[in-house]
Amino acid sequence: MKNTTYIFLLLALIFFNCTSEETTSNNNVVDDSIYFPDANTTSWETLPITNLDWDTTKLDALLAFLETNGTKSFMILYNGRIVVETYMNGHDSNKLWYWASAGKTLTSTLSGIAEDEGLIDINHKVSDYLGNGWTQMPIEKEQLITCKHLLSMSSGLDDSLGDNVNPENLQYKADAGTRWAYHNVYKKMQNVLAEASGTSFKNYFNTKLRDRIGMSSKGNWLELNDFNVYWSNTRSMARFGLLIYAKGKWKNEQIVSEAFLNEATNTSQNMNKSYGYLWWLNGKQQYLLPGSQLQFAGNLVPNAPIDMFAAMGKNDQKIYIVPSKKLVIIRMGEAADDETFALSSFDNDLWEKINNVIK
């Protein structure tokens, strides 16, 4: 397998790591405490896979499946320590890749930070921060929309008019809170955060989140086709996933409150039980998908643990967080099949392969 780096120990042999970033081995028994890499260095403690009660004979099949399905990078963290880290299809640990809509969860988390700081209240109207006329809706309908409606995709705005969020493209479809629809209007929360913080959204993100947990300063927000898309290396995505797994803490510092994250990673409205504040939720028995009002019965990803929640982006950008298994799993790359938005059949297929390893 070309250009592949992964951490793997066979019996008493010392595992190897081929990434350009420093990695520290931990050959002790499994530590139940959450490990955090230092925010100011690239070193990251690893955990040999044989220290876990996993089936190491199935790892090669998992990695082969990933490589043949367009994957650029894949990581598994166990309680914060790297168990698997692999790069393939011409990618490496220093290259940046886009998060697509998985990056919506960055906006959600920043909203929680701003609320913790008293800069916003997500129950307040969006117009309290942006003024009247930020949509083309009748004023009485516009003023029904709160920040929480933006975070939960329940603004009532017409989702058939494209992704541009200029006022002329934001038109009334239903009263806020009565209809769930996947829409780029969540981006208005970035404007709310900029107005409330008195700085740019990017600056607020860098100082309040990125730099505090050691995400690479090479990461950047880029405007692409009316989307504000975040790009980073894989370990930066893993650091963010670890922060959320740790209930908003980084070492001894509470970056975002646990109370906010509890809201963000649970059902946020009644129409789509499998959606929180820009997070997708497993185990809710019912879900809607982007671009559709059809309601599907069953778990979002049947093969995944029921407590799994995820950041999901176009072309299969994934952050899976599974508290019961102490796992954070990252996948970056091209679409595994046809071009996809958020959830795809790849999620279920991938979890079948992961389950074979983690048992």
Rank of each mutant, 00 (worst) to 15 (best):
T146L: 09
N282R: 11
L106V: 14
D211C: 04
D116S: 11
G298N: 03
D121K: 08
L300Q: 08
K2G: 14
N233W: 05
L243G: 11
A336Y: 10
N266H: 15
S43F: 05
N220L: 12
D55Y: 04
G156Q: 02
N17R: 07
S236F: 07
L281Q: 08
D226H: 14
L209T: 11
I76P: 00
S274F: 00
T23M: 15
N252I: 07
N299T: 10
S43D: 15
N132G: 00
S345K: 11
Q285G: 08
D60I: 10
V322R: 02
T135A: 05
S127F: 03
S268C: 01
T46N: 11
N266E: 10
G283P: 12
E21K: 13
F201H: 13
E140S: 12
I14K: 13
D338G: 14
P290R: 03
I34Q: 00
W44C: 01
K148F: 03
I139S: 12
M237I: 12
N123T: 13
D211I: 04
W279L: 07
E117G: 12
G241D: 11
Y186R: 03
I244H: 01
D55I: 05
F16N: 14
L151N: 03
L157K: 01
W54L: 07
K247I: 02
D158A: 02
S257D: 02
L209W: 06
K353I: 06
S154M: 10
N26W: 14
N191V: 05
S160H: 08
T234N: 07
T71D: 05
K314P: 00
W221S: 10
I49C: 08
F36V: 08
